[in-house]
């Protein structure tokens, strides 16, 4: 291949490439540098670069519970999004008919208000004196002093709500292309609805499931607003720790180290997931 023929490819990559370099690569490298600064530095005295790799084990030793909790909550929210999102996306793509666009707008509508306001609204929904808690107490699913707010349930519920559209839209995109004739063929071959769903619909939705899972899990693992507004001291996530380290404790090396640990942990999980689920999904499509 000659240089002149590959030039258009480079030109097309240029805008996104510059964007990524400016707003991801450069800050990420700086952040990595910060994570290796002398932990004894301060704002007044400055931070010297001492290649202090010890910041990593120190940060992990102090905050591994919050890290594991973040991954756990994010996984729980992702599963909840999938369970809620799959039937919803299926209904919109296959059954909604002329309501399809209205329903799609309804899925995206919450994005028109701020993330913070949406999460604060959940304080009202889950309030101890609210309808939901009252109902759950009446049917004895909650004790008389039981509550939903300030529990792990509230944090996972908030994450699920906030990231649900990220699951629904990719699922919709793959289900929308579902060829009705395949479902008919499946029925002709004596598959019941359950078997058709499991053997035909689900495999065809697999690329959407993989994309939706990633789009939900990755931001949920780094979120700190839901834990702050709906949680309790025992539900702090790694994002809360990074926030406090950067803004309140002014411990920049530790904050940067924790950010990188989170990034690495998520990356490892994503790669492992893609190797299993991603390959399997693509195989099944064929």
């Amino acid at each position: 291949m000659t240089g002149s023929r590959s030039r258009p490819a480079y030109l097309l990559l240029l805008p996104a490439g510059l964007w990524l370099i400016l707003f991801f690569v450069v800050p990420a490298v700086q952040l990595f540098g910060t994570s290796l600064y002398d932990p004894a530095g301060s704002l007044t005295e400055g931070y010297r670069m001492t290649w202090a790799f010890g910041n990593y084990p120190a940060a992990l030793a102090a905050y591994w519970p919050q890290l594991l909790r973040s991954l756990g909550y994010a996984a729980a929210a992702t599963v909840a999004c999938l369970v809620l999102g799959l039937p919803l996306a299926y209904a919109i793509a296959v059954k909604a008919g002329r309501w399809r666009n209205v329903l799609l707008i309804a899925v995206v509508a919450p994005f028109f208000t701020s993330f913070l306001v949406r999460t604060l609204a959940w304080q009202t929904i889950l309030s101890d004196s609210g309808l939901l808690v009252g109902l759950l107490r009446d049917v004895h699913l909650l004790g008389p002093d039981g509550r939903l707010l300030a529990t792990p349930f509230a944090v996972v519920a908030g994450l699920t709500y906030n990231f649900l559209p990220f699951m629904v839209l990719p699922l919709y995109a793959s289900l929308e292309r579902l060829d009705g004739r395949l479902l008919e063929a499946s029925a002709d071959l004596y598959a019941g609805p359950a078997a058709t769903f499991r053997r035909v619909t689900l495999p065809l939705a697999a690329p959407g499931i993989v994309a939706g899972t990633l789009l939900t899990f990755i931001p949920a693992a780094g979120d700190y607003i839901n834990a702050r507004l709906l949680g309790t001291p025992g539900t702090a996530m790694i994002g809360n720790v990074v926030d406090s380290a950067f803004l309140i404790r002014l411990d920049y090396p530790q904050a940067a180290a924790l950010s990188f640990v989170l990034m690495a942990a998520v990356l490892l999980l994503v790669v492992a997931y893609l190797r299993r689920a991603g390959a399997a999904a693509l195989d099944r499509v064929a």
């Binding site: 450069v26 990595f32 540098g33 007044t44 931070y47 670069m49």
Partner: peptide, 14 residues
């Protein structure tokens, strides 16, 4: 260049 970006430290800011 990236290594240089990472490696310079932050001077005191008083």
């Amino acid at each position: 260049g990236l290594a240089a970006l990472a490696g310079c430290g932050i001077p005191g800011s008083r």
